[in-house]
Design a protein around this nucleic acid. Structure first.
Lengths: 114, 114
DNA sequence: TTCTTATTTGGCAATTTAACCAAATAAGAA
DNA sequence: TTCTTATTTGGTTAAATTGCCAAATAAGAA
């Protein structure tokens, strides 16, 4: 990898890292439907407000969500819709992994009943 | 988030985490074209063999790549082709971020020349 | 068997990440 | 201004990640 390639893959990795956390994936899922305040997301997630606020700032810095202040509340919304396809692919991987697991299980169960 | 939701988002996050590293993204990119041995990838990346081997095992455990031994060498190949669309989306985010940066720059440069 | 090449595993040090609490800040309402 | 609500920031601690070295393992060649 030369310097340019390193820069490119680091830039990609930084965005993917921003998504690589259960709470942040949940947030992305929620924001697909509608904008939400920090408070609403905090309640849904069930963590400390400061924790959720920090998750949101990670997503914002990565350019995945954007925020808009209305009164004292801050509404967050999804900035990049293609993130959805993204999740679809992850589901494919999970499905494939699960199928592999099932095959292992069915194999062993068969042997046991024979 | 209830227990099932937590499980779901954790499963997704685990796969995304496996991709969230520059060297591993590079590996995925390389494997799109053809299968590669640990040695080949190690040379391309320019890190320790053990480091690359561990990156590959992270990708393998996540179900993203699979391996096949031929003689003393181990060939790794991409297991889930949809990972490509995935990267496409990441590029969109980067592009959007870059455009935002450019706007900031053009704004300031204009002001300065006025 | 012994030697060589290719890869994986174990272990350690350095860095990064994540969660909570407490304190600071922002915007209105009283 | 003072009070209240909503959010962010700072700080601390625990856990996870990464990279390299050294050693172990695997497969074939001599």
């Amino acid at each position: 990898m030369n310097q340019n390639e390193i820069k490119l893959y680091e830039a990609r990795a930084n965005i993917i890292k921003a998504l690589a956390h259960p709470s942040r994936l949940f947030i992305v899922d929620m924001l697909q439907k509608q904008s939400r305040t920090v408070g609403e997301l905090t309640e849904m997630i069930g963590a400390d407000t400061s924790t959720v606020s920090k998750h949101l700032s990670v997503l914002k810095n990565a350019g995945i969500v954007e925020d808009e202040k209305k009164g004292t509340a801050v509404f967050y919304s999804l900035k990049t819709p293609c993130i959805l396809n993204f999740i679809g692919c992850i589901e494919e991987v999970i499905e494939s992994n699960t199928k592999a697991q099932l095959e292992i299980l069915s194999c062993c169960r068969t042997r046991r009943t024979v």
